[in-house]
């Protein structure tokens, strides 16, 4: 049975926008599911729906996480799962970290929300998490504020925060989109490494086909809130069934391979 299984997920906003429309997807324990699609295809809304973070939206369908039906859970039970068994990393680490608190405090706070621990013990844990995600001089930097970190370091802090309780599922919404390529490579390396060591399943949301190719085991292609195509990453990349997926793969200008005079364009389904 999948760790996370989403069936017929539909999200309607009061404005009348149907952001997600009957979506099915599965994240297997310990595996990485890439969710790709263009802007507005409903990727972020899906991830927020899974964590129960959508406010004033109508969510219907079924979201099963480790056998529990999340949509029928009360807010208290959802809160207990969130951050503990499933955690999230967002796109823009600067705006997602609170500028008024030191980074270690924000990590320790996540830990103390779910486990009994003294402030000191939680701080020590936060420092060790910072070390684990590759922050140099973690002990000293732990008391720094988010604005004193670079973009890549901030994203590492976000990842440390998400992983401090060793969740079963990490939802990462465009975790490297705001970063430079060389820093993106570092963060992807970190995710790859953490996933190998801790066995955390990852739902990796991105619009970059290359990122999916490098990290995901399975992939779901979304368009207009619907699933266009899904399958193991090799199958989907080598023999996509739909013209849309084919187009998305081909229209990316690449640094390797033959150089077309004009790029192929995408057919919208």
């Amino acid at each position: 049975m999948s760790l996370l299984s989403v069936r017929g997920l539909t999200v309607d906003f009061p404005s009348g926008v149907r952001a997600v429309d009957g979506l099915d997807l599965d994240v297997e324990a310990g595996r990485v599911l890439g969710v790709v699609g263009e802007s507005g295809s409903g990727k972020s809304v899906t991830s927020l729906a899974v964590l129960g973070l959508l406010r004033n939206a109508r969510v219907s369908g079924e979201i099963r996480f480790a056998g529990q039906d999340l949509l029928s859970l009360g807010p208290k039970a959802m809160r207990a799962l969130r951050g503990d068994r499933m955690a999230m990393v967002f796109q823009d680490p600067l705006s997602c970290l609170n500028p008024y608190y030191p980074v270690a405090f924000q990590i320790a706070e996540a830990y103390r929300a779910h486990r009994r621990a003294s402030r000191k013990a939680a701080h020590a844990l936060a420092v060790s998490m910072l070390e684990r995600v590759g922050i140099p001089e973690a002990r000293r930097r732990a008391r720094s504020y988010p604005h004193e970190f670079s973009g890549g370091m901030r994203q590492r802090v976000m990842i440390a925060m998400a992983l401090c309780l060793e969740p079963d599922l990490l939802v990462a919404d465009e975790p490297t989109t705001a970063l430079d390529v060389t820093v993106q490579a570092q963060v992807l390396d970190l995710l790859r490494d953490l996933r190998e060591r801790s066995g955390t399943a990852i739902m990796l949301i991105t619009h970059d086909m290359g990122v999916v190719a490098g990290l995901a085991d399975d992939v779901v292609v979304m368009h207009g809130g619907k699933r266009v195509e899904a399958g193991p990453v090799r199958e989907v990349f080598h023999s996509p069934v739909t013209a849309y997926t084919r187009g998305l793969l081909d229209c990316v200008p690449r640094v390797d391979g033959p150089l077309p005079h004009r790029l192929p364009t995408v057919e919208v389904p």
Partner: peptide
């Protein structure tokens, strides 16, 4: 560092 949309190459 540029990710290439091909799992085998990547």
């Amino acid at each position: 560092a540029v990710p290439v949309p091909n799992p085998d190459v990547e």
